[in-house]
Amino acid sequence: MLPLRLAFPFSAIVGQEEMKRAILLTAVDPTIGGVLILGHRGTAKSTAVRALPALLPPMNVVRGCRYGCDPDTESRACDDCRARRAAGEKLRHDKHNVPVVDLPLGATEDRVVGALDLERALTRGEKAYEPGLLARTNRGYLYVDEINLLEDHLVDLLLDVAATGENVVEREGISVRHPARFVLVGSGNPEEGDLRPQLLDRFGLSVEVTTTNDLDARVEVIKRRDAFDRDPEGFTAKWAAADLDTRKHVERARKKIDALKVPDAVLRDAARLCAAVGTDGVRGELALLRGARALAAYDGARAVTVDHLRTIAPSALRHRLRRNVLDDVGSSVRIERAVADVLGAA
């Protein structure tokens, strides 16, 4: 089989700390929601996402399961796995990399949600379900480059599935539901069109990436990329230790996070912060708290503190501000002001 091109190592990405942090935090706690990455071309957006399978801890997957079910959480198992268990089968499992699925713009609904199985329809005249991209995405990442250009009906569909963790297919006479828990990572260039507000709000975190103007950093970016292009294996091996270190951090954080306490004072601060910037609904508050908790876990802290809140606030809130077309003040600036007002200076 054709060896796939190696992915550029996550740890070798120069700068873009906020983006890397946001992505890692969703690896610690996928319930934070998706990550929206806004920025110009060539800012390592795709690179960061495509580096995840090699970076994140591999996961256990039930052997033969089309939806990548986890052998240890029966509550989230698909119907096939339930049936197999019910029939008394002992499910075996394998280690797989965390899936990262690219959703191309203009992908058909068939490809995304799955469709009638052509083979069986044509050869046996049977109705059977052929899983789509969402099935492969279960427990992983769904990456949509240029998500701001995604078609509306697909956006609606992704929102529904992301919200429920389940893909419900009712079409062409087939009726199937299967688990589809995933972290939606969308990237886009805001100059090429804005995202619909409904979609914006569903993202847990958002980051704005820019190309650095620092000459040394830019030189370093290209140097690493060039070294990687010339010798992918050698370069990857050189960064393997750094990647492994990050992976261990994620693993430790996952074990720790459930035991982490969020003090009442921090809860109150979070609520006051959301009120101060005027985000609608509870999504902002949830993302803020979950983000802060994941960050505390990743940092190895004993409890969530106001500093964690302060760090994560711009990512958790900036995309939820009411847009005012006639107002020029950037969202990040408004958040920073609110953070300074509510939480005091760092």
């Binding site: 690219d102 191309p104 713009l105 203009g106 480059d145 240029e146 250009l149």
Partner: peptide, 10 residues
């Protein structure tokens, strides 16, 4: 258009 471009760039 954007969708064909996205496939090609991928």
């Amino acid at each position: 258009g954007a969708s064909l471009a996205a496939r090609l760039t991928q």
